[in-house]
C-alpha cells in the first residue's frame, strides 16, 4: 500500500495532473518504486535498487523536480518520466530537463509516453520555463524517434566528452 504520508506530501507539492481513467498520470509515491524499478529493469536489463531509491529521494515530490508515473488498469505502472528545472548552465536561462522516461514494452504505441511527456511539459511550463530539453545517445533510435515525434529538435547546445583513461 502507498505510504499515506508520502502520498500527501507529494500531492501537496505536485498535484495529480491527469484525471483518473484508463491511464492516469500522477506524481510517483514511495510505493511505486518497486514497480518503477522492475519496469526499468525490464527495459534496460539492469536491476538498480540504489539508483531508484536515490531517484525517488531526490525527485519525488520536490519543488522544481518532477517524477511522474502512468498508472494503467489494475493500478499497474505503465511508465514513468523524470525531469527538473535547471538554470544558468553555460548561460542557459531556466529550462526544463527530461532525463528519464520509460514505458512498459508491452504497452508501447498506446500513447503512454506521449501522455507522460505532455504532462511533464505542462508542469514545467506552469513552473515558468519555456523550453524543455533532453540528452540521448546517438544510437538510441527508439527514444530519439519518440522525442522527435513530440516536436523536439536539435537545440543550441552540443554535448562534448573526453576519454580520461
Amino acid at each position: 500500500m502507498p505510504n499515506s504520508e508520502t502520498r500527501e506530501r507529494t500531492a501537496s507539492v505536485s498535484p495529480p495532473v491527469s484525471p483518473p481513467g484508463e491511464l492516469a498520470i500522477r506524481p510517483a509515491v514511495q510505493a511505486d518504486m518497486r514497480a518503477v524499478r522492475a519496469l526499468d529493469g525490464r527495459i534496460t536489463g539492469l536491476d538498480k535498487p540504489d539508483y531508484w531509491r536515490e531517484m525517488y529521494r531526490r525527485y519525488g515530490g520536490q519543488d522544481g523536480r518532477y517524477f511522474l508515473v502512468a498508472e494503467g488498469e489494475g493500478k499497474s505502472i505503465a511508465g514513468f518520466v523524470i525531469g527538473e528545472i535547471r538554470a544558468w548552465e553555460f548561460g542557459s536561462p531556466p529550462s526544463g530537463w527530461v532525463f528519464a522516461i520509460g514505458v512498459d514494452p508491452d504497452g508501447r504505441l498506446n500513447k503512454v509516453g506521449t501522455k507522460l511527456f505532455a504532462d511533464i511539459c505542462r508542469l514545467l511550463k506552469a513552473a515558468g520555463v519555456e523550453t524543455v530539453r533532453t540528452m540521448l545517445g546517438r544510437d538510441d533510435e527508439l527514444n530519439m524517434t519518440f522525442f522527435r515525434s513530440q516536436g523536439m529538435m536539435g537545440g543550441p547546445f552540443i554535448q562534448l566528452e573526453k576519454d580520461l583513461s
Binding site: R138, D139, E141, M144, T145, R148, S149, G154
Partner: peptide, 16 residues
C-alpha cells in the same frame, strides 16, 4: 550526428 538525426525523424514526424 547527421545519420542519427536522419534516423530519428520519421515521415510522420516531418509531416506533423
Amino acid at each position: 550526428i547527421a545519420v542519427s538525426t536522419l534516423k530519428s525523424i520519421t515521415l510522420a514526424t516531418l509531416l506533423n
